[in-house]
Simulated scan of single mutants.
Amino acid sequence: MFYRRKIILALLQVFEGQVDKISLQKLLFLFTKNQAKPEYDFVPYKYGCYSYSAHADLTSMVSKGILTDLEKAYKCNETTNYFNTLKADDKKLMLYVKDQYGKMNADALMKHVYLNFPYWAINSVKAKEILTLQQFEKINNSRPKSEKTILFTIGYEGISLEAYLNRLIKNDVKVLVDVRNNPLSMKYGFSKSQLQRYCNSLGIEYVHYPEVGIQSEQRQELNTQSDYDKLFAVYRQNNLTKTTASQVKILNLLKEKKRIALTCFEANICQCHRKHLAEAIKNLPDFNYEVKHI
């Protein structure tokens, strides 16, 4: 079993085996915030901090009978003491979370998180209800905002879905432009339908331009930077010269939405075609904007 799932099970067991769904996300957030290397990342969602990855793990454990979904809560069905399987530091942290927050209901936990971590409350539908006007203003002031027009590029290699989405939110990206030829991924959350759904749930539009991508069979045996450079030389000559219409569409989208991001897999921009696509768009007439790799 993944260690991160043991943390969820231990958390449920420490809290008498059953926790409501909103509280569980908040408790898990408070727990991971104090980990040296967090097992889960979170995004600002409609009830505050939320981990899609944790939800996926919970759903998986329900399907295996490890947990029971009680509609508004999760119940642990395991007899194994998962607290005893945790690392020493995580045991101490788990007991700290229990001691500090064990008597708080969902609203109290939400309020605590909102006041202490306002960024994670920027999309909350409950914030205005449970906070004072002054406290709510602090939430609004935590929302990333910018009117500057920027063409961003971003890769998802090596980071979680939530960390990736937070980069988009913190840069006030309005539209994610998927430039993969084949938008399927073994990495959780990054296949087209999933990524579109998660972006939309956070108010980010998603569009896909497969024609500006590189086909999978062309991406074999890329072992050195020289291999990538040869691939991109062919890409510039054979693809970018033929997809000007799509590049113009992306530029027009940038002009309309002001902050859009081209996305593909690679973290290293020098090993991804999106760098060359961004340069091609930059060289179009009427492009007077910044290009930024995040």
Rank of each mutant, 00 (worst) to 15 (best):
H55N: 14
A245N: 08
N182F: 13
L12F: 05
T79Y: 09
E39G: 14
S60L: 12
A10T: 12
L28S: 14
L133N: 14
S146F: 01
S53D: 13
A36W: 03
D57L: 10
D99K: 15
L131D: 10
T32Q: 10
Y45Q: 06
C76F: 09
Q196Y: 03
W120P: 02
L168H: 04
L95K: 15
P285V: 11
K98V: 03
Q215S: 11
E290N: 08
K242W: 00
A163S: 15
E78Y: 04
Y47S: 11
H273T: 09
Y209S: 00
L24A: 02
Q271K: 15
Q100Y: 07
N81C: 11
S51D: 07
Q237W: 06
L24G: 10
M104L: 15
T32F: 02
V113R: 01
R143A: 11
K255Q: 14
N200L: 11
R236W: 02
K91S: 04
A88P: 01
Y52V: 10
G17M: 12
E266M: 04
T241Y: 06
E137L: 12
E16C: 09
L70T: 07
L161W: 00
K98R: 14
I260M: 09
N105Y: 05
H55S: 12
Y96A: 11
N141T: 11
S23I: 08
S185Y: 09
K258R: 15
Y188T: 02
W120M: 12
N223V: 03
R236T: 05
V62P: 00
K91V: 04
F152L: 08
I7G: 11
N84V: 09
E205I: 00
F15S: 04
K255A: 10
Q35T: 09
V291K: 11
L231F: 01
A267H: 12
M110N: 08
K72R: 12
A108Q: 15
V113S: 00
A10H: 04
L67V: 01
M1A: 12
A245H: 11
I281E: 08
Q135Y: 04
P210A: 04
E279M: 05
T153Q: 13
Y96I: 05
M94N: 01
K138G: 07
D229F: 06
I122W: 02
E290G: 02
S23N: 00
P183G: 00
T79P: 02
E16P: 04
G17E: 12
Y228N: 00
D229S: 14
G155V: 08
N181G: 00
Q18K: 15
N77K: 13
A163N: 13
M186A: 14
Y74Q: 06
A56W: 09
E147K: 14
A108V: 06
D286V: 09
I22D: 09
